[in-house]
Design a protein around this nucleic acid. Structure first.
Lengths: 126, 126
DNA sequence: CTATATTTGCAACAATAGTGCAAAAACAAA
DNA sequence: TTTGTTTTTGCACTATTGTTGCAAATATAG
């Protein structure tokens, strides 16, 4: 793994993601950072964090990419097969770490990645 | 429901989707149609077909939107909670109509839409 | 403090999707 | 078949989101 530097941008973005109960999009982060760094830097920091397995990337039900801290992963063992809930009202995307949909594929399929998202109304909005 | 007209563009797009074993993206369709109509028309036809429940929209694991004929839906009753498989090699996105992942959400959540996609290597590529 | 590799900002580019509007086409009714 | 109405289309333009190359700035090891 390439050596990473401890920069303000990275620290702040990581801080935001750590504090947040919900997954954040590039737009969310950019807004929160309010000019702290260039928008390209945010893309690159998020790429690095994803690459290093610190955060994971979720493709929301509307196609927008959001990022969340990996809570249940070690640096070696990743499992992102949990469910994501996308609220149609408050637009929050939440990782439901303990809900893992089960399904059975014919063994001829080899699964590498999983993206499970449902949308609707979350407990806070109902 | 608004009255729809039977145009060449719609007929051709519907034909493509009907013939295809896999879900198709706007780009796929545009390429196949090879200038038969404007790209904007394709967007609009797909929107109409989706609105009418003739096709359904799938957000692929990479965020790209693809469309597939609704096989198991009636005009009233829709269920798109089946699994989609996205092959990393041949890039085909397939509806696995008979595989429906099961999961249990706390009853405070109200689910409206579902998007289940897994990627990996499909039987034809393995 | 210095050398080096990483990170950043900028400007430009690229890909994809949406909009307004006038022209064209489909369809129902005469 | 013709006419009138409404839907559909193409075009040009705009919007949004993500990517790239490169020089300048910065973090870190030694």
């Amino acid at each position: 793994m390439k050596h990473r530097r401890n920069t303000t941008a990275t620290a702040e973005i990581l801080n935001l993601l750590s504090q947040s109960k919900t997954a954040l999009s590039h737009a969310n982060i950019q807004q929160s950072l309010d000019g702290l760094c260039n928008r390209v830097t945010i893309y690159r920091v998020l790429d690095r964090l994803t690459e290093d397995g610190v955060v994971h990337k979720i493709v929301n039900i509307d196609g927008v990419v959001v990022y969340a801290i990996c809570h249940t992963c070690t640096s070696k063992e990743h499992h992102h097969n949990h469910l994501h809930f996308s609220c149609e009202k408050c637009h929050a995307v939440t990782c439901l770490d303990n809900i893992e949909p089960s399904f059975k594929l014919p063994k001829k399929y080899k699964v590498n990645h999983v993206n499970f998202t449902v949308s609707g109304i979350c407990p806070l909005c109902c």
